[in-house]
């Protein structure tokens, strides 16, 4: 290819330098220039390709208006005719990751254009697109930008030129779950024996077929008689009492809190507010019931629809929180609820 290949870039409102959470509702717009990480990415292409334009879209807008957002992106692709589409990297940002993932999936499916994005392995966006697009494995925060861009650029370059990618661990992307035929020196039986011996000796070995991890939880049985049931409410939306007495982190939470609401009929502002650092908390701070609907649950309790609202509500911050911490919180909260004899739980997420 003598001409430079063309890259269309996608970023959110933050990396697009439009603004923070207050701009998360912005609809997508196209700019025929390199914005934010697109600039660094363009540099990493070392003149072989060029970012011809950047689509900027608010994270909330994309996730709340997926169809419209994807339509805009598809329309832009038809006009710009890129050779590669690049999105992110989104690191461990959930909404941004979902946007990159949905975009990557849609573009890879509909156009025959390779898509490259970058995410932290725990980002929920990974699952959406890793088999359709190339997802470079990144750090969990934007501190990993400088490392991620050259890896993404190298992969984009290969894809644009039709060069086959090497194995995921060599190239730095998340495995797509594909099996490929390849030539090796030793036949299977010998490799199996080698592996077995290594294992006996306690040496390192690498399986050739990692087992997929399935972790589905059986749905718990339904509540038989709601009018006698105790219902607890829980949130990942960061609602805390004024002053945040337990110091729950505004992002990457290390802990959860439980607060007595037995004497309350609703969560009043400013007695409660959101400490969450991953969404615009103006609406929640105006009326915390918009995130934790205690007012309605108390109303249903008064009407006799439910037996009782559990005396505590449970809260943490969902943004950037590791899956392992979220599991730990869930286990701890669940144990507490089980011992308290709670019959059902409503968990709200922002």
């Amino acid at each position: 290819m003598s001409e430079k290949f063309k890259v269309l870039y996608y970023v959110n409102q933050f990396f697009g330098q439009v603004g923070g959470e207050d701009k998360a509702g912005m609809p997508p717009e196209y700019r025929p220039e390199k914005v934010g990480p697109a600039l660094g990415f363009d540099g990493a292409l070392q003149g072989e390709g060029e970012v011809v334009g950047t689509i900027i879209c608010g994270d909330n807008y994309f996730n709340e208006n997926k169809e419209e957002s994807l339509e805009f992106i598809k329309k832009t692709i038809k006009e710009v005719e890129p050779d590669v589409v690049v999105a992110g990297p989104a690191f461990n940002a959930g909404r941004y990751g979902m946007a990159c993932g949905e975009l990557a999936k849609a573009v890879a499916e509909e156009f025959k254009i390779p898509v490259v994005t970058g995410m932290y392995i725990e980002n929920p966006g990974v699952e959406i697109c890793k088999d359709k697009a190339i997802v470079v494995s990144t750090a969990d925060s934007a501190a990993g930008m400088r490392k991620a861009l050259p890896v993404m650029a190298a992969i984009a370059r290969k894809l644009a030129k039709g060069i086959e990618l090497d194995a995921p661990e060599k190239e730095g992307y998340i495995p797509q779950g594909r099996r490929k035929t390849l030539f090796v020196d030793k036949r299977g039986s010998l490799r199996a024996i080698d592996m077995l011996l290594a294992r006996f000796k306690g040496e390192e070995f690498e399986t050739e077929l990692p087992m997929p991890v399935f972790d589905q939880v059986e749905p718990a049985p339904a509540i038989k008689d709601l009018s006698k049931a105790t219902i607890a409410v829980c949130t990942s939306g960061g609602i805390v009492p004024q002053g945040n007495p337990d110091g729950i982190q505004s992002a990457s939470a290390q802990k959860w809190g439980k607060y007595d609401v037995s004497e309350l009929v609703e969560l009043k502002a400013p007695d409660f507010y959101s400490t969450h650092g991953g969404y615009d908390t103006a609406y929640a701070n105006e009326n915390p019931n918009r995130v934790v609907p205690l007012d309605i649950l108390k109303e249903y309790e008064k009407e006799g629809v439910i037996g009782k609202v559990y005396e505590f509500f449970f809260t943490t911050t969902g943004t950037g929180t590791s899956v392992s911490n979220a599991k730990k919180f869930g286990r701890e909260i669940g144990k507490f609820l089980k011992e308290a004899g709670v019959d059902g739980v409503i968990l709200t997420s922002t």
């Binding site: 996730n63 979902m98 718990a220 919180f329 869930g330 909260i333 089980k338």
Partner: peptide, 26 residues
């Protein structure tokens, strides 16, 4: 969190806007 709480046999409902995330976490 939803899944770990349900593991105790307590029914739990997830109220969320990005439902694709709720689905992917199970």
């Amino acid at each position: 969190m939803v899944k770990e709480i349900e593991r105790y046999g307590i029914p739990i409902v997830h109220m969320a806007t990005i439902t694709t995330i709720s689905e992917s976490v199970g």
